[in-house]
Design a protein around this nucleic acid. Structure first.
Lengths: 184, 184
DNA sequence: TGGGACATGTAAACCGTTACATGATTGA
DNA sequence: TCAATCATGTAACGGTTTACATGTCCCA
């Protein structure tokens, strides 16, 4: 999956690994994240496969920045991936629910405390998502406004999902705490 | 994670790998799934660590059923894991959203078609979740009704999450299709 | 001058998926 | 007798996470 995410971004414009990591931390964190280690190794793999090329910046400073550019083969690979629709539901994995499922013999107050911590964290996450404006998104392609505008509804739809998901999460936590306290 | 799920179920009663797989397919599929291959290898690993013991059923038939039983060390490990609260949000990974994010240059009708296929699949998933009754859950511990009843609110809370998640998913798909169709 | 952001990498371990592989039991 | 279900396993691969490792630039 990361492979296609990187190709997707490089299809907008050439970027460095560091830039890809920063942009993902802002724009895809609500549905996919990756550590820098994986991004750098995956970029090298893409280069081996001829889907991207890279070159070291020859600037006046000694900061080593390697800029990756998508190749025609890379664009073809991305297009082919996009033209192959998902035909299954990718199963959810939710650590907190695993813990809840097996919490029947735990101290009830400890469970409620854990839910409250999660509530705070998810509230923070939701605030971060709500903070993402159109401008944040447009920075992905700063020099091609028209193209960015074309992509905007798609970017926004994923963000809408992220926000609604976090809202659901908070509601679920509240309702669960209420139920646990009531039977208390 | 699977390790603690298996210990969690074996804490209810001894089970075979096959049983664990079937029960997970019914009771945890909305927040965690595993292939039988991983279940069997993880059970062996748990045995190596002394957290479970196993023995082949010595029945009159030649069907090889290996029944796993949790040890005191296993219970301690499970307890310790449950008493270590999650203090971070585990990031979501949603394949369909990755595809949506990069769909700005795709044929719009193809995107809508893909969403409609997902709609059908998620509708089916939701129907399966709604089909899970209290009785389905109580079969996890058929011989210890009182204990099962104690666990029920926790099992139900995870199912409530699963149902609400699928409802959200359907709403999101509908809204997204509507937006895509409106901008023509 | 110290801390934070910028910047890139490697290695090992771990986890999860896919494919391969086999055989018994039960009911239609 | 055939298909579905019961039942268990191994192997290879690939993706992800964690830890280790290094060095620059810029601002307060």
């Amino acid at each position: 999956m990361l492979k296609h995410i990187l190709l997707g971004f490089l299809n907008y414009r050439p970027m460095t690994g560091y830039e890809l990591k920063s942009i993902m931390d802002e724009s895809t964190m609500h549905f996919w994240h990756a550590y820098h280690s994986q991004i750098y190794t995956t970029l090298r793999k893409l280069e081996d496969e001829g889907l991207v090329t890279s070159e070291m910046e020859l600037g006046d400073d000694k900061l080593n920045r390697r800029t990756y550019t998508i190749t025609e083969a890379g664009r073809a690979d991305l297009r082919e991936w996009l033209n192959t629709p998902l035909h299954e539901v990718v199963p959810v994995k939710e650590d907190l629910l695993v813990r809840m499922f097996f919490s029947g013999e735990r101290d009830k107050q400890a469970v409620i405390d854990e839910l409250r911590v999660q509530r705070l964290l998810h509230q923070r996450t939701l605030a971060e998502y709500r903070n993402l404006t159109e401008e944040t998104m447009l920075e992905i392609i700063p020099e091609d406004k028209e193209r960015a505008v074309q992509h905007l509804p798609f970017w926004e739809s994923t963000l809408r999902f992220g926000i609604q998901y976090e809202e659901l999460y908070l509601q679920w936590i509240d309702e669960t705490i209420r139920i646990l306290e009531e039977q208390g």
